[in-house]
Amino acid sequence: MRSEALADLQQARAAKRPVVFATRLSDGFQCLLPSSSASAALNESAHRALSRDENATKEIEGESWFLHAYSPPVRLVIVGAVHIAQSLVPMCAPLGFDLIVVDPRRSFATEERFPNVTLMDDWPDDAMEKIAPDARTGVVTLTHDPKLDDPALDRALKSDAFYIGSLGSRKTHAARLGRLAALGHSEATLARIKGPVGLDIGAVSPPEIALSILAEFVAYRRTIGQTT
């Protein structure tokens, strides 16, 4: 690997540009894809690798190529800079997720409580407008406050977010679904919301609840939510 090629790759990753680092296994020739100087077949394989988040050796035009897909990190939007969010943040780092914590209440979303995290103090609907959740984004609401949770969920349901979760008891969740239905969301759409949020591991403490949420989030990312 040439140091220049490595620097180009790291630059693309830092800019959160989805790229494939392609290696021709017969001689070690390498290039970044997609590229205007690469063949259509190579570029097409690169697009497929990115959409599937897949690293694999492929036979392309009589040569073996290793296509290493570098997609931007999966994002997790947390609405509510609450106690459970404080547990979620450090757990996300080793998993490689990009975190955004949304809370318009200034005393909650402070740098002191959430060091080194992207904090947004917009109202959740404005924040979601800016974040524009895509198929690599998950949204979890934690505030228990309909004024904050509902607009975030409303926007999440209108987006391609692959995972939507909302903290609250079964009773709270049923009431929440009623309010969102009144906003015009169908039953099928509302079924996208995981509520009560998280895998049922009998979680009690905030770190345990955070763990159950992240376990469900990973399950969706790796298996259940796979669309391609």
Binding site: M1, S3, L6, A7, L9, Q10, T23, L25, N55, A56, T57, F66, H68
Partner: peptide, 22 residues
């Protein structure tokens, strides 16, 4: 791993990278 490779190279080490390809 690539950041580590780049750091070690910058520190003057002779570096190689091994990747599982299949």
């Amino acid at each position: 791993m690539l950041a580590i490779a780049a750091d070690w190279k910058a520190a003057g080490e002779d570096v190689a990278i091994a990747t599982v390809v299949e």
